[in-house]
Amino acid sequence: MFTNGNSVLKTGDWVKGKLKNGELIIGFIESQSILDGVVKVTVAKSDNREMLGKTISTLSKNVKKLPLSKAVNKEQILFLIDLALLTGDEAWFIELSSKLNSINELVNVVR
């Protein structure tokens, strides 16, 4: 865990950044090297499709921690489920699927 000047970065945090060649990325920190100031980010979104799903190394100063998001509607949860599938995060997928099922049950009760 270390700071990149704006916030404390930890393994598992979602970040966005710009790489040396100008590519934009959004992903989560897979690991970090405090000595080098380097984070390894698994890319979930990028303007370069070849980067998707890859883990890349970049300086911590090149990424910014994303704020925590509280998904409140079905569309947001569906998007996050796709993201969990893309990144292979089974625990997150199960959590989101549970939220989606709760929303669907609530809708069925109201009908």
Results as ranks from 00 to 15, higher is better:
residue 94 I to R: 15
residue 29 I to P: 01
residue 104 N to C: 08
residue 43 V to T: 00
residue 99 K to I: 13
residue 92 W to N: 10
residue 58 T to C: 06
residue 5 G to S: 00
residue 48 N to A: 02
residue 66 L to P: 10
residue 31 S to C: 06
residue 110 V to A: 10
residue 52 L to T: 08
residue 3 T to M: 04
residue 104 N to Q: 12
residue 1 M to C: 04
residue 54 K to L: 12
residue 110 V to W: 07
residue 17 G to W: 02
residue 46 S to T: 04
residue 76 Q to P: 03
residue 100 L to K: 13
residue 25 I to K: 00
residue 55 T to C: 07
residue 31 S to G: 08
residue 49 R to E: 12
residue 108 N to D: 08
residue 106 L to N: 15
residue 69 S to D: 14
residue 61 K to D: 10
residue 78 L to S: 08
residue 32 Q to I: 12
residue 64 K to D: 12
residue 88 G to L: 02
residue 90 E to W: 04
residue 29 I to G: 01
residue 45 K to M: 03
residue 73 N to T: 07
residue 66 L to C: 15
residue 51 M to K: 14
residue 67 P to G: 07
residue 98 S to G: 14
residue 109 V to C: 05
residue 12 G to M: 04
residue 72 V to I: 08
residue 50 E to T: 05
residue 76 Q to F: 11
residue 107 V to E: 07
residue 63 V to D: 12
residue 76 Q to M: 13
residue 104 N to Y: 15
residue 99 K to M: 12
residue 90 E to I: 14
residue 66 L to A: 13
residue 81 I to H: 10
residue 109 V to K: 15
residue 99 K to Y: 11
residue 48 N to M: 03
residue 89 D to G: 01
residue 29 I to Y: 06
residue 94 I to E: 13
residue 24 L to T: 14
residue 81 I to Q: 03
residue 80 L to H: 04
residue 63 V to K: 11
residue 15 V to N: 03
residue 57 S to P: 15
residue 80 L to S: 05
residue 70 K to F: 09
residue 3 T to V: 04
residue 26 I to Y: 05
residue 77 I to C: 02
residue 42 T to E: 01
residue 71 A to G: 08
residue 80 L to C: 00
residue 26 I to T: 10
residue 25 I to M: 02
residue 60 S to L: 13
residue 16 K to P: 02
residue 5 G to Q: 03
residue 28 F to T: 12
residue 10 K to H: 06
residue 59 L to K: 15
residue 95 E to I: 11
residue 29 I to S: 06
residue 31 S to W: 05
residue 13 D to I: 04
residue 109 V to P: 04
residue 15 V to Q: 00
residue 12 G to I: 03
residue 47 D to S: 02
residue 40 K to G: 00
residue 54 K to A: 06
residue 40 K to V: 11
residue 50 E to Y: 06
residue 8 V to W: 01
residue 100 L to Q: 05
residue 55 T to M: 07
residue 45 K to E: 07
residue 94 I to K: 15
residue 64 K to M: 12
residue 99 K to C: 08
residue 9 L to H: 04
residue 70 K to S: 12
residue 7 S to I: 01
residue 76 Q to V: 10
residue 52 L to C: 07
residue 27 G to S: 09
residue 58 T to L: 04
residue 17 G to M: 03
residue 83 L to H: 10
residue 33 S to G: 14
residue 37 G to R: 00
residue 41 V to Q: 10
residue 73 N to L: 06
residue 79 F to C: 03
residue 100 L to S: 04
residue 2 F to K: 10
residue 42 T to G: 01
residue 93 F to H: 15
residue 39 V to Q: 05
residue 51 M to Y: 12
residue 96 L to I: 09
residue 97 S to R: 11
residue 109 V to E: 14
residue 98 S to T: 11
residue 71 A to W: 07
residue 13 D to L: 01
residue 20 K to M: 01
residue 4 N to R: 00
residue 111 R to Y: 07
residue 44 A to F: 12
residue 109 V to S: 13
residue 14 W to P: 05
residue 4 N to V: 06
residue 107 V to I: 12
residue 34 I to C: 06
residue 55 T to I: 13
residue 25 I to F: 00
residue 110 V to L: 12
residue 100 L to Y: 08
